[in-house]
Amino acid sequence: MDDRRLQLKFYETHDGKDVLKCIQCGTCSGSCPLSDKMDYAPRELFALIRDGEMEAVLRSNTQWYCVSCYQCMVRCPQEIPVTDLMYILKQMAIEQGISPKTAKMPDLYMTFYREVLKKGRLTEAMLMIRYGMKHPTDTLSNAFLAVKLLKRRRLEIIPQSIKEPKRISYLKSADSERTETK
């Protein structure tokens, strides 16, 4: 793994260089609802990026635990777009084929992504079924809930899609392009 090359790649993305503004105050880590589950809280992650430890960064679960609540971003005294940087790291990890120790969120997002690429819309039940095939224990506990939802006519079983999903096959060419995150 070429740490230096990946660090430069990160800095070249639109907001990447903003990590250089970080004063290590920890407001982001203290504001994060799930930082206690992360390998490195955001403040530590930024220190690692600056140290050029990119493999450790991309292999960590930190960016995948980010829920996109943007709390860190509105509080950061240096106005670093923390959440946006997490998106860049997720995309970089996918691009480099680096999976974190836990593959749950990448699997969930990828399942979502493929459904939308194919159908143009998401059917939540389909997402649960497809993700559930990879991670049965996460979804089995939801079987009871599914029954309750079904009783209340809240489970969509017919897959949803746009009128002619073939028309959006251009999404697949966009998929192979990848705009470096702006």
Binding site: Y87, Q91, I94, Y109, G120, R121, D175, R178
Partner: peptide, 22 residues
């Protein structure tokens, strides 16, 4: 008419180009 999914946090996490086209 014929609206599509916005992609939510999932698509932006995987690929910005696709998210923007959506």
């Amino acid at each position: 008419p014929d609206w599509n999914c916005c992609g939510a946090t999932a698509v932006f996490s995987i690929n910005s180009s696709v998210a923007l086209v959506l």
